[in-house]
């Protein structure tokens, strides 16, 4: 899958390791939550970066105590209409203060980029044909935000009542 990170197509430094496949000796890997729980010690001992994949029924609190060790939390959208990942991303950023990469995986579509960005996602495994141009168009489509969220964009409420000179 091509990776868009902060809006740019980049080479993916991470390798997804499927649950039934052995973890390679070196290199940054993203593993499932179950494996992370069972093989935590050996994964950390490798010395290379580790990330965890969460299914949409998992919650941010499933990895809350591990965040210092995780370079990526990848949140799955099995279908784009499954909106749980949005809440999980916001909780990771806002409740747990996670500063690492939050990656969208699964059914990731341009029309949802902006919502995801606002919830704290910063990396997107996109469809083969989706480009930086699609990204720019999608995230620039709307420039007014009624809600404060995880991305620091200023809300309409804040713009309206900003103290002059502050």
């Amino acid at each position: 899958m091509p990776l868009l990170k902060d809006g740019k197509r980049v080479a993916d430094p991470w390798v997804h390791v499927a649950d039934e496949v052995a973890v390679p000796a070196t290199g940054a890997v993203i593993v499932g939550l179950k494996r992370w729980r069972h093989e935590r010690a050996s994964l950390l001992k490798r010395g290379d970066p580790v990330g965890v994949r969460l299914k949409s029924m998992h919650t941010a609190s499933d990895v809350a105590d591990d965040l210092d060790h995780l370079g990526v939390v990848a949140l799955a959208l099995p279908v784009f209409t499954d909106g749980r990942a949005y809440t999980n991303a916001r909780r990771l950023r806002e409740r747990h203060g996670y500063r690492g990469e939050i990656r969208a995986i699964g059914n990731v579509l341009p029309d949802q980029y902006l919502f995801m960005l606002r919830c704290g996602f910063d990396a997107f495994e996109v469809r083969a044909g989706d480009t930086e141009k699609d990204w720019d168009k999608a995230v620039q489509a709307i420039s007014v935000f009624y809600q404060p969220a995880a991305d620091g964009r200023e809300s309409a409420l804040s713009l309206r009542h900003r103290t002059p000179g502050a």
Binding site: Q112, M116, Q147
Partner: peptide, 14 residues
């Protein structure tokens, strides 16, 4: 109305 319009977290509710 304003808060619920294009809410980034709640546009894909159950």
């Amino acid at each position: 109305r304003q808060w619920s319009t294009l809410h980034p977290e709640f546009s894909f509710l159950p």
